[in-house]
Design a binder for these strands. Structure first.
Lengths: 354, 354
DNA sequence: TTTAGCACTTGTTATCTTCGAGTGCTAATA
DNA sequence: TATTAGCACTCGAAGATAACAAGTGCTAAA
C-alpha cells in the first residue's frame, strides 16, 4: 500500500526525531514540526494507522512511537534527505587518501578510523582472504644470518618474511633456496604441500639442505596466512555511549559480534559477495548479521570487478543513516577512482580530491 | 610493621574469597575457612586491625571487607600461592610457540589471544616502535607494472612495500631506483628527508625520474610507519562479564584506555622500559596506568637485552593474579628461550616445549 | 475531515519500610 | 591476656506505595 504524502512526512519526522534523541516520539512533539499544520489529534490518528501498517510501534501502551525495521527501511529507501558532508568532514576523509598510498589494507583501516570519528559510531573494515597460491618465489640476501623470503602469488599479491638463521648464509645459498622453491613449490597452496614436494625441495637444495626445515616452516606459515581474513575495528567505546547499550548485556552482545573476527568476517564477506552496493541491516532483520539493538551499514569494496573486502559502521538501530551512508559512499567512490584501471598511483595522485 | 601469621592467613583468605566471588567478605564467612580455628569475633578484631593498617577497607559501614591496593600488593608479593598451569593450559600456550615461527609480532598476538582465553580477562600486546632509520634499500622486479621496495633498517628490521605503477618498469629501472635511494637516503629517518635529498634523488634517477614522486611517497610512508606502535587487544567483551563493569560508564572508561592505542602504548612502553620484570598495577595506584576499577599485569618482553614490547592482561582489580602471572611468566620465559642468542629458529625448534 | 476534550494506561520517580548482613563494643570466659 | 558470646547499631538492598507525567484512543462537536 502506498503511503500518503502526509503519512510520509509524519513517518520521516518521527524517525528524524527518534534518531536525534533516542526517545519515543509522541504526537504533541510533532505538532509544530516540519510543515504539518494539523493538530496533535490528527497526527495521533495517522500514527495509529502507521502503526497498523507496520512502520511504527509503541514500546509500551502509553509511550510515543518508535520506528520498526520496516519503518527504517522505507526511511532509508527514500524518505530521508541526502546528507552533504561538511568541508571539515571532507577534509578528514581526503586526508586518508593523501597519506595512505597504494595499500588498500591500510587505506581501509584509516578510513574506518576516520569514519568512526566523524560519525561517532563503531566502524570496521574487513579484507577478503586471498586464497591464492604461490606463483613464484624470490629471495634477497640481507646479511650473514638472515635473508628475505618473498612469495609472489598468482593474484599478484606479495607476502614476505624476514628469515633469521643461526647458520651463516651466503648470497649463493639464498639464490639456491629460491631456485629450489620455484622448482618444487610454485603453484601450490597450503593443503597441497605434499611430502613429495618437501623431499624434492630438500634434495634440490643439495649442500644447503640443512636449512630446509626452517624454510619450510616459514613457507607453511606464509601459505596459511594468505587466506586469513583481516578485520579491523575502530571506536568500540563509541557504542557504549548510546543509551540503547547502557545495559552491559546488550553492549556485550554487540561487541561480541565484532570480536569474533573470523565469524564476523565470514558473514560480512558473504553479504558483500551477494550485494554489489551498500546495504543496511536493522536489528533482527539483518539475516546472519542479526543484532537485536544495533544497525549495520555495509559497503563492499569492489576493485576491478573483484570484491576485495568491505567497510562498514555499527551503531544503535536509530543511527544517523544519512550521514553514515554519505561517508561510506564518499569513501568507496574515491577508492574506486584511486584503484580502478590497473591500480595506478601516479596518475591518481593528480586527480585525487583536495 | 610485620603481619602476624594469623593476620597473613586472614588477609589471604579474604582476598582469595573476594577474587572468587567479588562480594565483600565478612567475618562469619571466614570462620570455617582455611585452618582458622577461631570465632568470628576474633576474626573481626583482626580484620579491624588489618583495616587500620591499610590492607582492607569497607565499601560501607555494614558490609564485609574488601582488599585495598596495599592489600593486593602484599598478596601478590608473597601471600598468594603459586599457580601451576594445567596440562590443558600448557598445551594451549605451547601451540602458540609451535605455529608462529620467528616473528615476534604475531607470536605475541597469538599468545595474547591464548592468554585472554585461558584467564578470561582482556589481554593486550604492545610492540615498541622501531624508530631506526633506513640503512639500505633493495628493490625487486616483480612484473611490468610493479616492483617490491625493501628498506633494511639500522637495527636489522625490514620493511617493504609492493609498489604498483602505471608506467611499465624494467629490471634495470628498478635497480636504478635502489641505487639512487642508497646514494641519497641511506641513514635518514623520516624527519631528515630534506628537499636536498629529494632533489638529489630525482637527479640520480636520470631517465627514470618520472617515477620519483611515487617512490618518495612510498618511502615517506615506510619511514613513518616504522615508528608506529603496534597494539593488539583481545577479549574486550570478557571485561564486560564482571560485575565491576556492569556500569557502562566504568566499562567505557576501561575500554577507552585500551582503545586509545597510541597513548596506551606509550604508557605501557614507558613502564616496561623502567621495570625489567612483571609489574602489577591496581586501580588508582597504577601511576600513569591508573584505572579506578581495573587491574593490569604487565610483562615486558626483553630479547637480547632490548625491550621489544610488552604483553599484559587487564581485568577487574580482583582478578586472579596468580593465574595471570603464571601465564604471562610462562610465555615470557619461553619467548626468551626461543629468541635469545641471536634469535635462532632452527636450534630452538628442538628445544621448544612439547 | 479535523479537532478539542477527556478518561485511561503505564512507566518513572520519590518516599518509606522492612530486612538482613555485618560491624564494634562490652562483658564474660578459658 | 586472648578469646568469645551477645547485642545494639548501621547501612544498603529490595519491595511497596503513591504521585506524576506523558501519551494514547475514543467520542462528540466543528
Amino acid at each position: 500500500m502506498e503511503l500518503s504524502d502526509r503519512k510520509k512526512k509524519i513517518l520521516k519526522s518521527v524517525i528524524d526525531s527518534y534518531i536525534r534523541t533516542g526517545e519515543p516520539v509522541g504526537s504533541k512533539l510533532l505538532t509544530g514540526t516540519a510543515d504539518l499544520q494539523v493538530s496533535s489529534a490528527t497526527i495521533r490518528n495517522e500514527m495509529n494507522e502507521l502503526e497498523r501498517m507496520g512502520y511504527l510501534e509503541q514500546p509500551h501502551a502509553s509511550a510515543g512511537r518508535v520506528p520498526t525495521a520496516e519503518g527504517y527501511r522505507t526511511y532509508v529507501n527514500g524518505l530521508m534527505e541526502q546528507y552533504l558532508l561538511s568541508l571539515e568532514e571532507l577534509k578528514v576523509l581526503n586526508e586518508v587518501f593523501n597519506y595512505k598510498v597504494g595499500e588498500i589494507e591500510r587505506l581501509m583501516e584509516s578510513a574506518s578510523h576516520a569514519i568512526s570519528e566523524m560519525t561517532n559510531y563503531t566502524s570496521f573494515s574487513v579484507l577478503r582472504p586471498e586464497g591464492s597460491s604461490a606463483q613464484r618465489f624470490e629471495t634477497l640476501y640481507i646479511d650473514d644470518h638472515s635473508f628475505l623470503l618473498i612469495m609472489i602469488c598468482t593474484d599478484g599479491n606479495i607476502r614476505n618474511r624476514h628469515v633469521k638463521v643461526k647458520a651463516s648464509v651466503t648470497p649463493e645459498m639464498v639464490r639456491a633456496i629460491a631456485d629450489a622453491l620455484n622448482a618444487t613449490m610454485s603453484g601450490v597452496c597450503s593443503d597441497e604441500v605434499t611430502l613429495q614436494c618437501v623431499l624434492e625441495f630438500e634434495e634440490r637444495l643439495g649442500e644447503y639442505s640443512g636449512i630446509a626445515a626452517t624454510v619450510l616452516r616459514v613457507i607453511y606459515d606464509m601459505l596459511n596466512s594468505t587466506d586469513k581474513e583481516k578485520v579491523h575495528i575502530d571506536g568500540v567505546t563509541k557504542l557504549l555511549s548510546y543509551p540503547e547499550f547502557s545495559d552491559v548485556e546488550k553492549a556485550k552482545g554487540a561487541i561480541a559480534v565484532l570480536e569474533d573476527r573470523k565469524d564476523f568476517a565470514a558473514k560480512v564477506l558473504s553479504r558483500s559477495g551477494d550485494e554489489k552496493g551498500l546495504t543496511v541491516h536493522f536489528g533482527e532483520t539483518g539475516g546472519d548479521l542479526a543484532l537485536p539493538d544495533a544497525g549495520i551499514v555495509l559497503q563492499p569494496i569492489i576493485i576491478n570487478g573483484k570484491t576485495v573486502g568491505a567497510i562498514g559502521v555499527m551503531g544503535p538501530k536509530r543511527m544517523d543513516y544519512k550521514k553514515v551512508i554519505a561517508s561510506l559512499q564518499y569513501f568507496v567512490d574515491n577508492v574506486g577512482k584511486q584503484f580502478e584501471g590497473e591500480s595506478d598511483n601516479e596518475q591518481e595522485q593528480r586527480k585525487k580530491p583536495e
